[in-house]
Each structure stands twice: as C-alpha cells, then as structure tokens.
C-alpha cells in the first residue's frame, strides 16, 4: 500500500507527539453550498482529518442531532454525487488534509462499489467509514476500495470481543474508530478510565492509530481522551452548532472554530 494522506498525517502527528483532532460534519447541512467553507474552517481551527457525513434517509446508528442534520441535507437535495463534488472543490485549495466519507452503505451500493471507489478517488477522498459495514461484510468491498487507494476505516466498540477486535485490527486501515459508549451518536458523556482500560488490549494487537469518538463535547473531554488515544473525533457537538445557526449560516464557520479551537488548545497543552 502506498502512503495516502491519512497515513502521512498520522505519521507526522506521531513524529510531533500530537493527537489528531477529527471533526465530523454532515455534508449539505444546512445547505450544500456551505459545506466546503465549513471544511476549510475546520482545518483553519486545527483539524487534522475531516470526516464528512454522507446524508442518508435511515441513519440507524445516529442520535437526533445527526438524524436532523441528514434530514436538512437531504431536503436540500444533497446526494452522494454532490458530496463527491464538494470534496473535489475542497481539494482545489487543500491537497493535504485527509477526507474520510462516513455514512451508511446503501448510497454506495446503489452507485456501485467500483464506480464509487473510482469517483471517490478522483474527487480526492482518502478513506471510507461505513457504519453498517463490519469487516466480515466488507470482505469483498474493502479490496475494491483499496484498489483505488481508499482506506477502509472500521469501528471498535465497548462490546467488541477480543476475537472480533483481532479481526477488525487485521482488516483495519488508516485508523481505528473506537466508539466510546453503547449508544447512538450524541449520547451521554464518556468514561475516560473505561476507554483507557478498553484501548489497552487493542494497542497490543495493532500499530494503527486509535481514535475515539462519541461523547466528546468540549476541550476538557477532548484533552482527557487525548491522553489515552491517538485522536479524538467530534461530531454532534459541531452539528449542534450548525443546527443552532441554520438560519444564518454565515455565523457557522466561527461557531465551528470556537468549538474546535478550544479542543485544539486543550489537546496541545
């Protein structure tokens, strides 16, 4: 595998002993024309990797905040093809920040895995995280992504058994996304000690960066998780800011920067 932007970014972070800050926003929320600007704003505020949500009609693993973001984005007509165009536009001015598409399998299934992988690569996508594609079901899909240089990012959860964790580590690429709690996105706060305990055996199994998401709301939680993980992923806390400002989207970049700036400072302290 040649290095792609995700690998390069984590290698650089490791060399500097820094933690990755990974924001998630839903593409097309509150309207498609704003998304690329939000992506740049996240990078300006210190984001290392961007997770861009592909809106889906049935976001089963998401709580109300991201469900509503999907509804707003879909209402504005945001579809997979539009999301790929957004990434391509983002790449006009940013060739270094890795972009991971996050979402559910069906929009890719409909486009066709090969077509999707080719178009995603052309657009400048670096990785794919499909919530409803565990490695077992990805056995035929992940190689198609790999052919086009896309990393398949998999989830680990507090309920993952050691046997499964070994399988996931063996199939994982780019980084592993550790879901900090049992629940949907935007759920209650996480327990850092429990996360630390659960990450320890996973560290033994893999050299991949371990990033933690779900329940990270502010600088304080980000810093606490940053002490035990290689990166922190923040979604609902940002998407809530977008929702609050949906009627005056010009205020959103500053709102995103405020949340991420605090986290960046806390992580680098």
């Amino acid at each position: 595998m040649t290095m792609n932007r995700i690998d390069q970014r984590f290698a650089a972070l490791k060399a500097q002993s820094r933690r990755a800050l990974i924001p998630y926003i839903t593409a097309g929320d509150p309207a498609p024309q704003h998304t690329v600007g939000f992506m740049h704003a996240c990078v300006d505020a210190g984001a290392d990797v961007l997770e861009l949500g592909v809106p889906f009609s049935d976001p089963m693993a998401d709580g109300p905040v991201i469900q509503k973001a999907c509804e707003r984005a879909l209402k504005q007509g945001t579809r997979m093809a539009d999301v790929l165009d957004m990434v391509a536009t983002f790449r006009d001015t940013d060739q270094t920040t890795p972009v991971v598409l996050m979402g559910y399998l069906n929009p890719i299934e409909r486009m066709g895995y090969d077509t999707f992988a080719q178009r995603a690569r052309e657009a400048g996508v670096d990785g794919v995280l499909m919530v409803d594609m565990p490695p077992e079901e990805g056995a035929e899909i992940a190689p198609l992504f790999a052919e086009h240089g896309l990393r398949s990012i998999f989830l680990l959860a507090p309920t993952t058994s050691p046997t499964r964790a070994a399988t996931i580590c063996a199939h994982g690429e780019g980084y592993l996304y550790y879901v900090s709690l049992k629940g949907v996105t935007g759920a209650a706060s996480l327990d850092v000690e429990a996360v630390e305990r659960q990450l320890a055996p996973i560290r033994e199994m893999t050299d991949l960066p371990l990033c933690v998401g779900f329940g990270i709301r502010d600088g304080e939680t980000a810093a606490a998780v940053g002490r035990v993980a290689d990166g922190v992923i923040v979604g609902s806390a940002l998407v809530s800011r977008i929702a609050e400002n949906a009627d005056h989207p010009e205020a959103i970049p500053a709102a995103l920067k405020a949340v991420l700036g605090d986290m960046r400072d806390a992580l680098d302290r």
């Binding site: 089963m60 565990p134 077992e136 079901e137 998999f154 989830l155 959860a157 507090p158 309920t159 629940g183």
Partner: peptide, 13 residues
Amino acid sequence: GRFVSETLSFALE
C-alpha cells in the same frame, strides 16, 4: 448478512 454497527455485533453473535 449482518450489516450492523459494531456495538451490536457482539449481541448478535
């Protein structure tokens, strides 16, 4: 198949 988010995999097993 079993196209679910990871948290449910163990429960299904």
